[in-house]
Design a protein around this nucleic acid. Sequence first.
RNA 1: GUGGGUGUAGUUCAGCGGUUAGAGCGCCAGGUUGUGGCCCUGGAAAUCGUGGGUUCAAAUCCCAUCACUCACCCCA
Length: 419
Amino acid sequence: MITQRPKGTQDILPGESARWQRIERSMREICALGGYREIRTPVFEHTELFQRGVGDTTDVVQKEMYTFTDKGGRSITLKPEGTAGVARAFLEAHLEAEPLPCKMYYVFSPHMRYEKPQAGRWREHHQLGIEVFGAKDASCDAEGIKLAMDQLQACGLTKLRLEINSIGCPACRAEYTERLKAFLSPKLDKLCKTCCDRFERNPMRILDCKDPGDRALVQDAPAPLDCLCGDCREHFEALQRYLTALSIPYTVNPRTVRGLDYYTRTVFEVFLDIEEDFPALTGGGRYDGLLASLDGPDVPGFGFGMGEERLLLALDKMGIVEPESPVYDALIVTLGDEARTYGLVLADALRRRGVRCDIDHAARSMKAQMKYASKTGAEKVIIIAGDELSKGVVKLRDMNTKEELELSREQLIKQLSKE
RNA sequence: GUGGGUGUAGUUCAGCGGUUAGAGCGCCAGGUUGUGGCCCUGGAAAUCGUGGGUUCAAAUCCCAUCACUCACCCCA
């Protein structure tokens, strides 16, 4: 029990960390090219931030938060999503007083939600993503979506499906909610239980229900798209023009609504277009009212989060496996204490010249050390034992050709470090 | 929170009422007294998830519990 990780968590083991680093490196490079700089925020925040920022009626806040009271009596919540914390940091540091837009990205940001784990869903997962404050034009949305697609493609994914939608501003939302309720109220008794609750609380989410009965009932329901005000309509049309200009294929899915309250206008999701059940790799959109709802200035925002675990899962699914590169360039095989001392110093000298190498720290037999070298994939083995010590040489063995050379210490260092 | 499946060496699994619970892979050692991959030999390694019950007898049947897993809800 003591050696068992908590439910829904996972370890990233030494053999796996390289692939995480790879996707994070590409995200950093892509973001840097667009002027995004990294932001890091705490893993926990005041509970109220999420209640107000994400929305009190959302499932995330209502039933999925890790909330506890700390020793000072404060209600603290482990962050269930990334945007609220970044918004808080932006406001606290008064970044609105600096040149806008403020373009930020994050990588390997842990998110915690108390839910039942399953394929592609964990209690702790990691996201990379962007947040932009102070850019209201749809070109910002298009650029952000392009960045998400670029990142997915840079990791090797193809067959991606981008779905976009607009859920309007608070003004169109109010009108839409009224029309939706008018449409649904005669059918209220036929909706599933959760949707009956949603009818009062957050009727737009009924569109997203997976219940087949509800789906049929909602088939002809008005969509948020039908109720957009002039400005929102223009914003959405502009977004599509920009996406087309950037040659990004997309489909408009009028049913895409998001589970977090702060979204306005643009929402989007990206799926792996190969498997129906595969969960969204990325989700995001515009949140023009978020800062104001946190008592901040009226500064618009846009962002997305991408699940790193899901991204890696998608790579597995698509059979995209980067070959693991060996940990060592060379291993130093020694026999006896004198040789080990010599090897230890030699390893230090080689490392200073950029050669990844190691010596045996377990006083194992030569056979065992050779076996180890073979298993770890080292291409060269440097042998140092009684013969070599007395002759004042080291032996360099090529593990592929089996060729062995007797070299002086200086020759060896020179040969390995120039490679 | 709701529902299904599965828990046996490090790992993948076999055994499904009857001696001392097995195999492949992995690990360690030897065959080769200083040389890896292939081969051969040997070894270490399992409170059969946990607790209770049925039985002369339980890894095997029953109940509970925990864990893992898949799906729903929701989300990355």
